[in-house]
Amino acid sequence: VLKALERTRQLDIPDEKTMPVLMKLLEEAGGNWSYIKLDNYTALVDAIYSVED
């Protein structure tokens, strides 16, 4: 979780936006981090930006 938060902080995305999206992605992935961690957490960042749209 810390590495995911560090990555999104680099992009000026607050933890308050990151955590709900991260928890949803983890739930959808059955707790499997490998998809979320791919390409420096690209799936997480993309999911956060899609929620903002």
Rank of each mutant, 00 (worst) to 15 (best):
V1F: 15
L2Q: 15
L2I: 13
L2C: 15
K3W: 05
K3H: 12
K3V: 07
K3S: 11
A4K: 03
A4H: 03
A4F: 05
L5Y: 00
E6D: 07
R7S: 05
R7G: 01
R7A: 10
R7Q: 06
T8E: 02
T8P: 03
R9T: 05
Q10H: 08
Q10V: 07
L11C: 09
L11I: 05
L11Q: 04
D12C: 15
D12R: 14
I13D: 01
I13P: 01
I13F: 06
I13G: 03
P14M: 05
P14Y: 04
D15R: 03
D15A: 03
D15P: 04
E16Q: 09
E16H: 13
E16F: 11
K17E: 07
K17F: 08
M19I: 15
V21D: 00
V21H: 05
L22H: 01
L22C: 01
L22P: 00
L22Q: 00
M23S: 07
K24S: 07
K24T: 07
K24L: 07
L25V: 04
L25H: 00
L26T: 00
L26Y: 04
E27Q: 12
E28F: 08
E28T: 09
A29M: 13
A29I: 07
G30Q: 12
G31S: 06
G31A: 06
G31V: 05
G31F: 11
G31I: 05
N32C: 09
N32D: 15
N32E: 10
N32M: 07
W33Y: 03
W33N: 00
S34T: 15
S34R: 10
K37Q: 15
K37T: 14
L38A: 15
L38G: 09
D39K: 09
D39I: 03
D39P: 03
D39F: 09
N40W: 07
N40M: 06
N40T: 03
N40S: 07
Y41P: 00
Y41Q: 01
T42D: 08
T42G: 12
T42P: 01
T42V: 11
A43F: 10
L44Q: 01
V45R: 04
V45C: 03
V45D: 01
D46Y: 11
A47V: 05
I48H: 00
I48V: 08
I48Q: 00
Y49C: 10
Y49T: 09
S50D: 10
S50N: 12
V51N: 12
V51H: 11
E52F: 13
E52D: 13
D53R: 14
